[in-house]
Design a protein around this nucleic acid. Structure first.
Lengths: 262, 262
DNA sequence: AAGTGGTCTAGACCACTCT
DNA sequence: GAGTGGTCTAGACCACTTG
């Protein structure tokens, strides 16, 4: 047992209304915010905090769980509690689907990740025909069956995004779109080759806490929300030709958009 | 003490590796997902769960705190734990800053909320000159002082959004923009009257867990993330004329955007 | 083997809500 | 007053990591 560095953490205010575990959480949070514990640094162990504050272990754990819920720290069994480092962020620009980015042989994800010095991977590819959910069907104009393409994107081995594309069967069946690898430029390039010239995309964005399944798939730390993005692609005749449902680890993304003033 | 409705909650699997509190959380989550506890409904009390599962109260509380962290339930002191109802959602369309929406007398927020049948309020208005943060200054092209306009938006009495606008002082000083109420069409209408014709907006979107201050300001339930939106307005000469930093309760918003395919 | 966090128990007292 | 959740204690045993 090692004494805490003096001055980093203060004492409790027994006259305060504020619960003891909240006071401890406040002091740790302040120390992290002020850089006295840096990114990746180990916090004092539970037993050190128990001794420092003279409280029971459950009170200390309660304080730590507050910080964990805020996404400030994460715990590693047998090792300690650490200040959560900010992962590299992927920026999605509003021109990311511009035709000029679609001419190369690689996918947008791969090109962009390599440019940023990260190692991109795509896995758990699934391509199959199925019945769409009511929501997807409505967005696509009511087809009874669709082609579904599901994949997971990883950056430097870390899963950051899970995406499912849905296309009406009459567009996609027996085309390269139904292949696991649709070829250079992705399915948008194939759609245009098939005569469905793309006009615009609509995106809907929500943020929420992840479901247990999403926590597993994206290996999310506690206190990390997800961004839920639903994109619909429209061709020049106004027909919806694809719906893409994407769940992203919120700490790995910044979305950027441009809006006209007119 | 009342017995639980039979069949709603099952028994524990003592052969499972899964921690008891997680098994309890799983069963409650499943019951909620399947609609056996509806929105706003009260879950069994802690003591009922203690009796049903034959575990200690801390174990039950641990299970409930998992669901609370997921944003599925919220507790009310002295009353019980309830399935969290989904609040009315505000949809931000990509044309929300189009000039044609700026001609009326009311603010976009007011018009839109009343159309949706909600009661809009704006409060905690603060307008003052100050030194910008490094980030805001950089986005505005490096001014040393800015006009800051801060306000909070409420829907049916519930705070949903906190926004701070920053404008270079040379644009805003001694203009209607420096007034608490800038007049019909808001500050964008005033900027155009002053000769700064708006060309486009850039928006950056992040999602994260709220800080303690944001939890207070937006009266957020636990398990509700925030959407952090930073918008920069550019005039036709390419000059950034405003930065707006907005924090929104994520459960109250859907953002919608349109992207060109070209 | 020693230190770490993960889980769980069996109590206690308190503040809040409802009737 | 009875029932609810909020806080806190003082233990226990376990699984994981490191030396």
């Amino acid at each position: 047992m090692v004494a805490l560095p003096s001055g980093v953490l203060g004492a409790l205010d027994s006259t305060s209304d504020r619960a003891v575990f909240r006071q401890i959480a406040d002091q740790l949070r302040e120390a992290i915010d002020k850089g006295r514990f840096k990114e990746g640094a180990k916090l004092p162990s539970e037993s050190e905090l128990v001794e420092h504050y003279g409280v029971s272990r459950m009170t200390v754990r309660n304080a730590l769980s507050v910080l964990q819920g805020e996404g400030l720290v994460h715990s590693e069994h047998g090792k300690g509690v650490f200040v959560r480092p900010r992962p590299p962020v992927r920026r999605l620009a509003s021109d990311r689907f511009a035709r000029r980015h679609r001419e190369q042989g690689k996918s947008a994800f791969t090109v962009e990740a390599e440019a940023a010095g990260s190692r991109p991977e795509v896995d758990s590819l699934e391509v199959k025909e199925e019945r769409p959910t009511q929501d997807v069907s409505a967005r696509l104009g009511g087809p009874r069956r669709v082609l579904a393409r599901r994949r997971r994107y990883l950056l430097d081995g870390r899963p950051v995004e899970f995406a499912a594309s849905f296309l009406p069967l009459d567009l996609a069946r027996n085309t390269p779109i139904a292949q696991p690898n649709p070829g250079p430029g992705g399915i948008y390039a194939r759609l245009e080759e098939l005569g469905h010239r793309l006009d615009h995309f609509e995106e809907e964005i929500r943020a929420r806490m992840p479901s247990p399944a999403e926590i597993r798939t994206l290996r999310l730390a506690s206190g990390v929300p997800v961004i839920h993005l639903i994109r619909t692609a429209f061709d020049t005749e106004g027909r919806p030709v694809e719906v893409c449902d994407t769940v992203m680890a919120a700490d790995a993304y910044v979305l950027a958009y441009q809006l006209p003033a007119t």
